[in-house]
Structures are given as C-alpha cells and as structure tokens.
Design a protein around this nucleic acid. Structure first.
Ligand SMILES: [Mn+2]
Ligand SMILES: [Mn+2]
Ligand SMILES: [Zn+2]
Ligand SMILES: [Zn+2]
Lengths: 138, 138
DNA sequence: ATAACTAGTGCAACAGAAGTGCATTTATTG
DNA sequence: CAATAAATGCACTTCTGTTGCACTAGTTAT
C-alpha cells in the first residue's frame, strides 16, 4: 500500500485507480488546478468522474477549493498547515495576472479583519493579484 | 437635466432611458446586484441590453464589479470613497451566508498584505463571509 | 432639413462551467 | 457465490456570460 493510498484512506476515500492518479497529478503540480486542467491531463477519462473525484476530495478535506476571481474553481491539496476544516485562519492565495496561475501562499495567513457592529465574520477569502515570482523574473 | 443624467454624462455615458432606470435601481438597492437581479426587476427589458449597460457602467467607472465567491458577478455603484480606478486601496466586501446578500463596506479598507519575495501585488480581493447586521438580529 | 454617421437596442445563437439522473461496472461484505 | 454498496460512464440540462448581426434612435456635418 503506497503513501497516497494511505492518505486517501485516512480521509475515508477509497483509493481507486483514478483517484490515485488525480491525487498524484495534484501533488506534482505546485499550483491550483481547475477541472479543465485535469481533463486535459487525463483526456481519456470521463469528465464526470474527474468532477466527482474533486468533489469527493473537497468534501473529505483532501483538497480545498480556491476562488481566485477568474470565475473558474481551482483546487489544491491541503497541507498540514491548511486549517480549512476549521473554515478559518486560512492562508491566502496569489493569482498571477501574467501566467494566469494561482498558488497557495500557505505560509501567509490572513490578517484579522474588522467588520462593522452587527456583522459576524465567519471566514475570509483573500486573493492577491499581481505578478508571480516566476513571471517577475526574480 | 436630472442628477442621474449629469452623473452619467460626467462618466461619458449617454443617459438613455434604460440606463437611467438601471442607475436608479442600483442607487436604491443598498446591496450589490447581479445581472439576474436586474433582469427580474426589469422583466420587459432585454437581457443583453442590461448586460451591456452593466459592462458600460463598469468600464466607465460608474459601478465596480464584485466577486463575492458565489460564482456570480455582482455590481455596485461606485461612491466617492471608491478608488476602483486605481485598482488599489479598495474597500472590502461582506457576503452574508444567511440572506445571501453582498454589501460594500466602503469604510473598511483592505489592510496591507505581505507577499513573498519575487511576487508583486497589484491588487487585492477581500471578501468576508458571515452573518450580516440584518440577519444577526442586531 | 436632410444625409451620413455613430451609438444603442433587440433577437438569436453560442460557449463554458457546473451539475443531475440513470444504467452499468467494479468492489466489498456476509 | 450472492447481495449490497460504491464508483464510473454517458447523456442531458441549467445557468451565466458573451458575441454577431440587423435594426432603430440619436448625433453631426453639409
Ligand atoms: Mn490554498
Ligand atoms: Mn464595493
Ligand atoms: Zn505568473
Ligand atoms: Zn444577511
């Protein structure tokens, strides 16, 4: 039993062939991926299967969904530092306006945000847009 | 010539009947509205016209687009405190998980966000989710 | 005022992403 | 092995956003 299989089972997800492949794909990519990315990577696989795999992964906290403002949902593997179960204290995300890639800045936590009286903050989505390290030439 | 007509012309937008109506609608609403909201409010009008009106308003800085994480673009009138032309120093937005409404918190500016070396921050989207003042009972 | 031009609108059609229902296959368990 | 549950494949739908094109209204030059 491989590491990946163990990880999946730890999250109550049965390690099917497709799921292992998708997990591997997500692990190799260092950026957040959209369903269409996975579709292109696994051209022979069914879209629905890929879609439902992502949904399962999300539900079981294997990945977290990222709304980077492009209108397309992206997903990235949760790491140890990823408290997305708590739905709070999340890291921020960076979207590059040049290469169009979105990355998790897991080391960068979202600061405390004040809201007006009467408003109750439950969680915060923060996306920084600009030029990523690869594109800034440095 | 009414106030609204003046405002539109100040932004180089010709004040047609439809545009005045939509502007009024946006001004009366205190929340961010989606295209579908406007569609329901003006059932007799063409969807495309409403769509293009919003796009024109956005381009001419009469409204700003809001990505509240629902996957549906919302729009709200720009106010004097709305520096959306500069694409920086923007106010934050609040999305209520209960009533599903999104409001501009124009008084609440987005704090300075640090990004890692090599990354260049151009602008920031910050959406707080939780319970709004109307729904929190206070 | 009329002609020429430009901007706005209405209608139809399209694209992309997301989601659902159902039959079929695969895996698990008694 | 039989019964059951989970996963997959296929088809189809919905929703949002977007574009092309013809027509109309409004603006400007002669
Ligand atoms: Mn992330
Ligand atoms: Mn706003
Ligand atoms: Zn980049
Ligand atoms: Zn509310």
């Amino acid at each position: 039993m491989t590491e990946i299989e163990k990880t999946l089972e730890n999250h109550q997800v049965r390690p099917t062939a497709m799921r292992i492949l998708i997990y591997k794909y997500l692990a190799e990519k260092e950026i957040a991926v959209a369903l269409t990315d996975i579709e292109s990577a696994f051209a022979k696989a069914e879209r629905t299967t890929l879609y439902r795999t992502l949904k399962t992964f999300e539900e079981k906290k294997i990945v977290h969904q990222i709304d980077d403002g492009t209108g397309i949902s992206k997903y990235a593997l949760c790491e140890s530092g990823c408290n997305c179960e708590i739905d709070q204290d999340l890291h921020l995300h960076f979207h590059c306006n040049n290469c169009n890639e979105t990355v998790c800045l897991t080391e960068h936590k979202i600061p405390q945000i004040k809201v007006p009286d009467g408003f109750v903050s439950e969680n915060v989505n923060l996306v920084v847009k600009g030029i990523c390290d690869k594109c800034s030439g440095q």
